[in-house]
Structures are given as C-alpha cells and as structure tokens.
C-alpha cells in the first residue's frame, strides 16, 4: 500500500518520542554545567608541567626534546643559567601556546623525564586570542598528586619506574641521564 512506509517511519519516531521519557538509552542528553559525564582516564587536553614536592623543583630539565618533537611547534623553552652563566637543569621560560597546541599528546610520549603530561582540564575560556592563550611556566605547573588523582593507572606505572631508576641512580657506577647541550 502506498504510504505505508511513511507510516511505519512515523511509528518509529513516535516510539522514540514516548520511550525517551522512560528509558535512559533513548534520551542521552546530559545537562552539562549541572551534570557531567565521568571523565575517561586517558582523556587528553592541553599539557601541563609536573612538580614533585615544591613548585620550584619541577621535573623538567629543559632538554628541549618536546619542543623539537611538537608537530605544530607550540612549546618555547629557554634554559636557566646561574650567576656565572653556567646552564642549569631547569627551564627559565617554558611557554605553551594553547592557541597552537592541538592536543596530540606527542610531548608526553617523547619526554624522557616524565615531566609533561596531558591534562583533563578543558574549561579554559579566555577573552583574548594571543597573549591570554600563551601559558607560561607558572600557569602550567601542577603537582604530582594532581596527576595521580586524574590518571591513577599511569601515575602508578610512572612512579614505579621512577623509583626503580632512583634505586639504580644510588649505585655509583650507573650513569646519570645525559644532559643535552643548550639549544641555540
């Protein structure tokens, strides 16, 4: 019968309409600011820098690997120097331009010191487009506890790895990780 197919289709929409009042499966809307979906552990947004105890001693040794590997080149690192001009194992400037960063997670993967990780924070609205989105070292610092809180599985793995390394480092013959030359 002509028109029967349309009627059958209408019944499907009617079924969806009625059942949306009763089943969770048909009505999947989440009222966002009030309700939130549970965060996935591997979810990644912009990167942050990690420190262990005090914000001053961050894990980053300013080796510049992440800045070199970053596909859109959004990381700027300047190595810190002491009073005599000798390079130190910490960054003076560590900027990530969030207007360029594309959340690919390559910096986290290549970092040999487990110093940079992808964050879960995504509510980062700003009023400007340029300097406001260029995050500096102070804005990027977050504690190791925070990392353990958002990504417990990875944090446990990394903690175990670091402890193993430390135990090895106590041994006098084992070499410390090489410090790459300061980038020009």
């Amino acid at each position: 019968m002509y028109g029967f197919g349309v009627i059958k289709g209408m019944l499907v929409t009617l079924k969806n309409f009625v059942l949306s009042y009763f089943t969770k499966e048909r009505l999947t809307t989440v009222q966002y600011p009030e309700e939130r979906l549970p965060e996935k552990e591997r979810f990644r947004n912009f990167p942050f820098l990690i420190y262990d105890d005090k914000p001053e001693d961050l894990r980053c040794v300013s080796c510049d690997i992440c800045a070199k590997e970053c596909p859109p080149k959004c990381i700027t690192i300047v190595r810190d120097t002491d009073a005599q001009g000798k390079p130190l194992k910490r960054p003076k400037v560590f900027d990530i331009d969030f207007s360029i960063c594309m959340n690919c997670g390559i910096c986290e993967e290549v970092c040999p010191f487990d110093a940079i990780f992808m964050d879960h924070e995504f509510e980062l609205g700003e009023y400007g487009r340029f300097e406001e989105l260029n995050y500096h070292k102070e804005d990027l610092l977050k504690s190791a506890e925070y990392f353990a809180q958002i990504r417990p599985t990875d944090a446990a793995l990394i903690e175990a790895k670091r402890r193993q390394k430390e135990a090895k480092g106590a041994h006098p013959t084992s070499p410390t990780p090489p410090i790459p030359p300061p980038s020009s």
């Binding site: 996935k40 591997r42 690919c104 992808m118």
Partner: peptide
C-alpha cells in the same frame, strides 16, 4: 540525532582507548 546517539557510544570507546573522541592519534 538518532545517528548521533549511536555514534556517540563508539566515540566514547575511542576516547577511553585513545584519549580523544575524534582526533584519536
């Protein structure tokens, strides 16, 4: 929207595994 509803379930899986819904890398 019916299609989006089903697609979202798969994208949730991608997010849980790869970290991102659409830009999986």
């Amino acid at each position: 929207l019916y299609a989006f509803r089903e697609r979202e379930k798969i994208l949730d899986l991608f997010e849980a595994v790869a970290g991102s819904r659409m830009m999986c890398n």
